[in-house]
Design a binder for these strands. Structure first.
Lengths: 108, 108
DNA sequence: CTCGTACCTAACCACTTGGTTATCTAACCG
DNA sequence: CGGTTAGATAACCAAGTGGTTAGGTACGAG
């Protein structure tokens, strides 16, 4: 699985997006991350492994805690990818696009 | 499944992203979309249904053809979502963020 | 009407996913 | 040492995914 696919797949789950949102406030332990959710510890562990494999979090080791930290680098790729479609949702961008196309045509 | 999750899930497959990329060049029939891939028609149909359910394409009806057209609206939500994490990958944005936080603190 | 083309649905298969419970390791605390 | 806490792993299950083949529908051409 390529990097972008892994990132999109990781982001497809609301629980994992919520975990990422929580990590914007700073590092957290597995226990802390699991607090807001009504699911078991192992389920959280699985989500964290998916996030880790996608490169969205990094994990440390402090005594019996394994603190998680956000790594947003893959999200930059997501933003860049999505931006390539901006002209298809942004009307003003679409007009600019059409104008540039027209200019290119009259040029020839 | 919420809209954003459906969109991310749809984008997690490279074949579906390739279909979207093809559709930026204009509408296409199912046959045309399946050409570049070495998979069966029904497999393409399934991908198109996923994209349709995610609101990423719309489908028409022209005789025996079912032309597909890109609808990038959900991608705007993706871009907006990702942009919220910009300060975590963009160093200069992070410095600006820190500065604003500092200003807010001294304000009080 | 018949044939070919475009496309869909149905049924099936292997694999993955998101969850569970039960069990294990590792570290701190008395 | 023994007990508690944090967390991972294993085994299992139901549901979903991505693919297949077979067969059906709808339309245009001859």
């Amino acid at each position: 699985m390529d990097q972008l696919s892994a990132t999109f797949a990781a982001l497809a789950d609301p629980t994992r997006r919520a975990i990422l949102a929580r990590l914007t406030e700073g590092p957290a332990t597995v226990k802390e991350l699991s607090e807001p959710f009504d699911i078991s510890g192992p389920a959280i562990s699985k989500h964290l492994r998916v996030l880790e494999k996608a490169g969205l979090i990094t994990r440390g080791r402090e005594a019996q805690w394994r603190p998680c930290q956000l790594d947003a680098t893959p999200l930059k790729e997501v933003a860049v990818w999505a931006e390539n479609y901006r002209r298809f949702w942004d009307a003003s961008y679409a007009r600019l696009d059409a104008l540039l196309t027209e200019m290119k045509e009259t040029e020839q």
